[in-house]
Amino acid sequence: MPANIIFVTSTGYWEESGDPLSALDPKAGTATDNQSATISPTQRGYYKLVAVRQPEGNAHIFLQQVVLDAAGPKVISSAELEEFSAMKAYVTDIRPDTSDGVAAQPGLFATVYLKTDPTALEPETWTVLIDDIGDIKVERETN
């Protein structure tokens, strides 16, 4: 694994989506070359959030869609979440909604902890949400 991958969280699931993640929401970011992979409507998989440290110290976060097939897991889509990249944030943690590995319904919910100022005492919390129909939202958490 490359040393610049600082956090990886696998969480949530999708099924019968028929389209790679990048086709679901153009605001989600720029798809990589593996967007050309197609999936059949009967396939199922999960999501991954990956924080990659940049040379200047901040991180870019990628949302991946992974398909499960007979040969094992395969990334079929990877999109940079531009909302985080634009902030030039320092990611301090990424956590799934639950750590038991079981989601009750399709989608994803994860919390990203970050600092836009590395000297700040407390991180900001942001959520990444994908609902059961594939709509993606990245927003600051409010209590």
Results as ranks from 00 to 15, higher is better:
Arg44Lys: 12
Ser22Arg: 01
Asp93Gln: 09
Pro41Tyr: 06
Leu68Lys: 06
Ile94Trp: 00
Asp93Lys: 08
Tyr90Ile: 02
Val128Thr: 03
Val50Met: 04
Val66Ala: 04
Gly29Trp: 05
Gly101Lys: 11
Thr11Trp: 01
Pro73Phe: 08
Ile130Gln: 06
Gly18Tyr: 05
Ala89Val: 01
Asn58Ile: 02
Ser77Phe: 13
Glu16His: 07
Glu15Asn: 11
Tyr90Asn: 13
Phe7Lys: 14
Arg95Cys: 04
Val102Ala: 06
Thr119Gly: 07
Gln54Met: 13
Asp19Arg: 11
Glu56Pro: 07
Asn58Leu: 02
Lys48Leu: 03
Asp100Glu: 08
Arg95Gln: 15
Leu49Met: 07
Gly72Asn: 10
Glu122His: 01
Ala59Met: 11
Asp33Pro: 04
Thr42Lys: 04
Glu141Gly: 00
Val8Phe: 02
Asp131Lys: 08
Leu68Ile: 12
Asp19Glu: 12
Thr30Trp: 00
Ser17Lys: 14
Leu129Gln: 14
Thr125Arg: 00
Ala104Gln: 13
Asp135Asn: 14
Ala120Tyr: 04
Thr38Leu: 03
Ala31Met: 11
Asp135Thr: 15
Val67Tyr: 05
Asn4Ser: 15
Pro2Met: 05
Leu24Gln: 11
Glu139Cys: 02
Phe62Asn: 06
Lys48Ile: 06
Ala110Gln: 05
Gly107Cys: 07
Pro26Lys: 15
Ser17Val: 10
Ala31Trp: 06
Ile76Lys: 05
Ala71Trp: 01
Ala120Gly: 11
His60Phe: 13
Val67Asp: 08
Ile133Gly: 14
Gln105His: 12
Ser36Cys: 08
Ser77Gln: 06
Val67Phe: 09
Ala31Asp: 10
Thr9Phe: 01
Pro20Ala: 09
Pro106Ala: 12
Val50Ile: 09
Arg44Glu: 08
Glu139Leu: 02
Ile5Gln: 08
Asp19Ile: 11
Val50Phe: 00
Asn58Lys: 06
Glu80Met: 14
Gln35Arg: 05
Pro118Ile: 11
